[in-house]
Every structure is written in structure tokens, then in C-alpha cells.
Write a protein that binds this DNA or RNA. Structure first.
Lengths: 221, 221
DNA sequence: GGTCAGAGTAGACAGTGCCTAGTTCCTAGT
DNA sequence: ACTAGGAACTAGGCACTGTCTACTCTGACC
């Protein structure tokens, strides 16, 4: 009814992106309980019903956040792994150079170390977001976030495959070993985000994890 | 002001326990978002302000739930580990019998397998509760839950020490290895509670985890 | 130029957590 | 036996939230 006395444009233009960015900040600084659609709307200078045009639910907003989180996390560990070897670790990397040994210090190993470290660093930087990404849903995760999570796992598989080609372990075990290392890294992150261990401890733990993992994985003949 | 027309006693007697039990059920069946102090009060047949006598906060209720969760989880993995070897695995167990080998199938190994399996089974049974126990707090966890979490970790350490005495790995590494296995098991659980893998996959994953862990841990000379 | 869907506004409603004042009961202490 | 006091509980109110609905504005397209 109000004739809207303001001079600002009726259409915000990119409300969705603004809401997501602000939500991410709130999540980081004050936790998920402090995330309110109405507050986000106020901060963006729109009415309390405006977010509904972009997110049908509060849950939809959270899903979008989780989805973005998975994409960012995948990018970061891919980048970290790629930075260790000269070329990238994207999909069909060059075949292994035949380096043998137990793999605990090969080129594949350093990529694994870098990726794991980047993963946990993400957890330190964005504890609430990672928590949201892996939170227990009463109903299964939505299509979009499941896809994004899948992409993260695919990235992990890529990195693990490259390490296998470098001789760190048998290529036939890549599937199961990827699952295992993913779980381990996620577990270390959970210990960090829940405040159970310090970041210093987590660094050492990542080191131990990779060392034991490589020794155990290559021991399987 | 109302003269309380009911005939039921004024004092509920054990409201606190009833609230916690009911809260646990709601958590299990409808997730943490469905947990409302007022609804719990209604279900218990008391006024909406009654819970405040026992839990100053909604957060306090959640803390109490998490605390109970830690205790139960610790009990379950201790029991599972104890059931593998004849005697219990409590604290100062009998010294190892000198069994050598790489430890991937020794007596300590089966205790580890049982404990890990019990942990993940707990996650399957109580996903939302486990999530709550390891949720990212903007402020550090309360005193009580930190203590309960500590007790869980101590239980893990006990089990790991017993396996070390059985020759699974060097006793000097127990501290770091406990942290590592705890993280791994928690990570597998997170994959389950977030609906990323099925329970069948989780069983196989636990198996792989223990195998790789023992191979890697004992490989460290 | 009219129309039509998307984006935003504004109001209402049920529900929640939290606070406060008052009431009831149990349990000491004398 | 009586009374003081504290713990447990009731009842009302406040601010806030998510969600629904009806309405309005705007730009783009025929």
C-alpha cells in the first residue's frame, strides 16, 4: 500500500548474491543460529519478504550456502594439489613416471599432503560452513548439494588417482582409498571445528594421517 | 494466578529426565530444528516455562543432550571392545601376551575393529545426536560437554593402549594414533550422518580403515 | 502500447525463546 | 509443631522469527 517513498530502485538487481555473501559472513562470525532471513533482508535494505523470491525456505538458503561451500572447498584442494606438481591434477593427468618406493615421500604424496592440509585449513577458516555442509539431514540432502558434494568427491578421486599413477598405491584401490582419506580428513576437520583440538594439533594430525595412510595403503602389496 | 484446577501433583518429580528423554526422541525422529522447549513442555504436561528450572537455555538443553551422547558412545565402544577379548578393556588391562606380527589380525586388532564398528553404528542410529555432539560452536564447548568428550577420548586411548600391548604398534605412538583413529572413525560417521554413503559402504569403509591403519601404524618400525 | 511474469512490499499469523512476577510445594531449622 | 526459604512450576508478556497471502512495481517481449 505504501507508495514507497524511497528513491532507490525497486529492483535490487543481485539480491540473491548479496544475501548469500552476507549469510556467509554471519555464518562465519556468529554461527548458524544467528542466521535470520529477516536480518539478512534488513542488511540488504529490502523488505522482509524479499528473500522469498530467491529462497523459498530458510533451508533453501542453507542449501545454497552448502553448495557454494562444496564448490569452494573442491577448488581449494584441487589448487593446493596442483601447486605441488608442475602441471595441474585435472582429470587425465600425465601417466606416472614409474617412480617406485613405498610412496610416503613421492610426488603423489606431497599432493595428498597439500590437499589434506588445504581441507583442514578450510575447516579452520569456515567451521560453521563445513558443519553445515556435513550436517545430518532428517531427509536426504537436496539435489543441488548432493551434486556439489559429488564434485568434491570427484576432485578427491582425481588427486588420489594421480598419486596412484605416481606409484603411491595400487590403482585398483583408488575408489576405496579415496573414501577412506576423505573420511579421515573430514574427521580431523570435525575435531577442529568442534573445538576438540587446536590448529597446531591438527597440523601434526594431518601429517600423521598422510604418513600412516600411505604406509598402510602401499603395504597392501 | 489460576488456582490450578488439575489433580496432578504440582511437582513433576523428574521433569529433567523426562525432558531429556523426549528431546532425544525428537532429535532422532525429526532433527534438531524440530526441538522446541515449549513443545517438550507440552509433551511433558507442564507449562511452557517449566523447563527453565532445569535448563536455563535451549543451548543448555542441547549441551546436556550432547553430554549424555558422549557418555553413551563411550560406553558402547568400550563394551564392544571388551566383548572381543575375554576380560574388559578398562584402564590397566593385563599386559600383552607378546603376540608379534604386523598386528592386522591380532587380538588388539579385533578390539579396534569392534570399537570402530560400534562407533559408526552409533552414528547410524543417532545421526542428529552425533552431529550435535560435534557441531561447530561459535564459542567453545561448555565445561560439562568438554569433560564428557574427554572421557570418550580417554576410552579410545584405553582401547588403543590395549592394542599396543598386544603388539599392534609402538606404545609410544598411542597418543597420536588415538587421535588419528578417532578422527577417521568420526569422519566415516560424518559421511554416514550426512547421507553421503550408505550403511553398507560404511561397514566396508570401517574395515578398510582399520586394515590400512594397522598396516600403516605398525609399518612405522 | 498492452500484457505478463518476476521481483519486491506490506501485513498478518502462529510459533518460539526468554524474562518476570507470582504461586505452590517440600524441606530445613528451631 | 511451626515457620522461613528455596526450588519447582504457572501464567503472562515481549521481541523476534519463518511463512503465507494480497498487492504493487518494473522491465521485457509481442
Amino acid at each position: 500500500m505504501g507508495p514507497m517513498p524511497d528513491d532507490r530502485p525497486f529492483h535490487h538487481g543481485n539480491l540473491r548474491a548479496v544475501l548469500l555473501d552476507q549469510a556467509e559472513t554471519v555464518l562465519r562470525e556468529r554461527g548458524i543460529d544467528a542466521l535470520s532471513l529477516r536480518e539478512l533482508a534488513r542488511a540488504a535494505g529490502v523488505s522482509h519478504g524479499a528473500p522469498r523470491s530467491h529462497f523459498i525456505d530458510r533451508a533453501a538458503l542453507l542449501d545454497a550456502l552448502a553448495e557454494r561451500g562444496f564448490v569452494r572447498l573442491a577448488d581449494e584442494i584441487r589448487g593446493a594439489a596442483a601447486r605441488t606438481s608442475g602441471a595441474g591434477a585435472s582429470g587425465d593427468g600425465a601417466p606416472g613416471d614409474g617412480t617406485s618406493g613405498d610412496g610416503t615421500s613421492g610426488r603423489g604424496a606431497s599432493a595428498l599432503r597439500a590437499a589434506a592440509s588445504a581441507y583442514v585449513r578450510f575447516a579452520v577458516r569456515e567451521p560453521a560452513l563445513l558443519d553445515l555442509m556435513f550436517s545430518a539431514k532428517v531427509v536426504g540432502p537436496s539435489e543441488a548439494v548432493a551434486g556439489a558434494a559429488e564434485r568434491l568427491f570427484a576432485t578427491m578421486t582425481d588427486i588420489m588417482s594421480t598419486a596412484a599413477e605416481a606409484g603411491a598405491y595400487d590403482a585398483r584401490d583408488v575408489g576405496r582409498l579415496t573414501l577412506l582419506l576423505s573420511a579421515t580428513v573430514q574427521g580431523i576437520s570435525a575435531l577442529v571445528t568442534s573445538g576438540r583440538i587446536t590448529t597446531d594439533q591438527s597440523d601434526a594430525l594431518v601429517d600423521d594421517a598422510i604418513t600412516v595412510f600411505l604406509a598402510g595403503a602401499s603395504a597392501g602389496r
